[in-house]
Design a protein around this nucleic acid. Sequence first.
RNA 1: GGGCGCUUGGCUCAGCGGUAGAGCGACUCGUUUACACCGAGUAGGUCAGGGGUUCGAUUCCCUUAGCGCCCACCA
Length: 720
Amino acid sequence: MEIESQYSPQETEKKIYQFWMKNGFFKPEKSAPKKSKGTYTVVLPPPNVTGCLHMGHTLNVTIQDALIRWKRMQGYKTLWIPGIDHAGIAAQNVVEKNLRKEGVSRFDLGREKFIEKVWEWKQKYGDIILDQFKQIGISCDWSRTRFTMDKDYTKAVETAFEYYYNKGMVYRGKRVVNWCPRCQTSLSELELDHQEEQGSLWYIKYPLADDKDRYVTVATTRPETMFGDTAVAVNPSDKRYEKLIGKKLYIPIINREIPIVADQMIDQTFGTGAVKVTPAHDMADAEIGRKHDLEIIQVIDERAKMNQNAPVQYQGLKAAEARQKTIEELANLGSIEKIEPYTHQIPKCSRCNATIENMPSWQWFVKMEGPAKKALAAVEKGKIKFHPKHWENLYFSWMRNVRDWCISRQIWWGHKIPIWFCQTEPEKYFLSVKPPKKCQICKHCQPKQTEDVLDVWFSSALWPFATLGWPKKTKDLKTFYPTDSLTTGHDIVNLWVSRMIFSSLEMTGAIPFKDIVINAMVKTKDGKRMSKSLGTGIDPLTLIEKYGADATRFGLAWQITELQDMRFDEANIMAGKKFANKIWNAARFVGWQIGSEKIDVAKAPKPITDVDKQVLAELKALVRSTNEFLKNFEFGKAIQDIYHFFWHTFCDIYLEAAKKQINETQDKKLQSNTRNILMYVLVNSLKMLHIFMPFVTEQIYQLLPIKNKKKALIIENWPK
RNA sequence: GGGCGCUUGGCUCAGCGGUAGAGCGACUCGUUUACACCGAGUAGGUCAGGGGUUCGAUUCCCUUAGCGCCCACCA
């Protein structure tokens, strides 16, 4: 073989990937043997349309590709379905931000036009993201690529909603949400930034109703919400207030009567141990309010101004202005006991930095009691396993305390909830997936669909089966479902994995997957989060360009342990590049020793010398341990062992010995046997290496003189 | 506030009841007909601190400190 002594991934990788694609090796129909050992299915956690490839994705798909390639070579009918998530508010944000550069808001455009814009974005960037994945060399069946807003997928979403609705599991309720007064939408916790602000803690005296000379002092950072107070809460075991529980207090200024209630939640050591409860404007207070059946009085509106429930002189004031006025008025009344400086975290809108207001709003919920029970049992009984196991704790703790799922969002981009409101009786509604011909309530009005959109996770929860065609009874669904393993980060165990499990049990009656592989979070060497905005992110595409995809994959796989974080060290990628070169040169040497004679590697040659014995025995042991490691999803150990064998046993010891066994003897039998062993060990090493470093290994395979060679290494038989 | 994880040679990490290993890096020597992205070696750690269990602990338990993550309703 006339080959360069330096392996250059950049030229090879593109060529090899095209070769695989052209031959359809990623498709189960083309890659599986006629008599397959069964199926092995994986669904790719769909990246957001907004995203571009980061180290987390790279690690995540490296693992999945190793599994899929391993199973494919073992003779399973393997399918790996890729796709993209429409990413709800994240996508809406990005497009909105882009529009803002042109001085246009989404409200200027209107809903229809805006959604068109998001679709344009998706068309443009969806493919870019998938191309990035291809650069890593992953073997997804691209012909089955799905998007969570595709027509068929939308059908699945509607069917799922219908299912819950018809079973009486969907309801509408008022709940305190995070509201951005500028963006006019509720936001999830993930969409908030917390900023430290210097504020004050005001100690305000609330007089007792039956004895105006006595009072209870409450501490608050938000005095202006006092007009919405419907109780004062104390800890039941707080001696100071024991005798006051159940008595009434007056809210200063407005002199409305409110009860003193007892609640475990109250921290006796904070402030005065007595808390004003404003169920409308505080999540915690809302919880207390629910427990004690308190009235909810909203005093701040959607624009963060005081509404008609506040005293007249306050109405229309911004919350901050109202606070000032409240303090002045309280001071005049002599109701302020003291003021302490207080530093606290203020929630801000991550998009526009406006201060978030908590306020009650109507939302849609799915009852979780039934689904959670089933989902819990599936993991408890071991039908679904977490790897590493301890991650199941995260799942259990969430599932055991799960609250009803708020599935509605007040954004524009997403699946519209198929609920229609009667215009005659506006409180009444009905379900209709298609625009209804007439109102099912009053039979004569023109019903209006809710503006709300479903939580993105509602649709991603259906991913394992909706990608296979559900609710249609497709051949794919029948063949490939349930899937086998799901690989993802621990950050979305509750958001996503849990929801896939119960959704699958509800919709299909089956578990969505058997094994959940939790991959580590990739952090910087100093343990910092990798983030673009912090400038701590590392772009995997740059690494691929610099060292090659094989090296990048190797470097990441090498660092896989059971830990929750991976401190990423680029040195390992460099080691990967060296290793790729080592493999390349070992193969070059073997090819050189052999010439053009085709070697049969179907069976292991018989050893003659001690080194022969050693290398063959170690290879055999390696195959066994590698299978064991992979079965247990211990990828780091697997690649480290293969590396060690290849470099130190095969190259350092056997190759050196082989030089002597071939060149320093006249023994023809020993010479040819040594050549056979060289080729045999090389090819079998390549097979195992292939699942982590697919490109170099395939390239070498293509060049080697082997008898009865398969068309490609990717469909070769896994060593026995 | 609660929960979880981590703390082992310069760096990234294994390991595990009987006084420590790998890769990278460093150093020494060697090799220029597979590979200098190489080979053969060497140095380097009181296994975060304290306490306990034990014949014996890096390994088990408690505790302190630091780091990280998740959850949460400190007004």
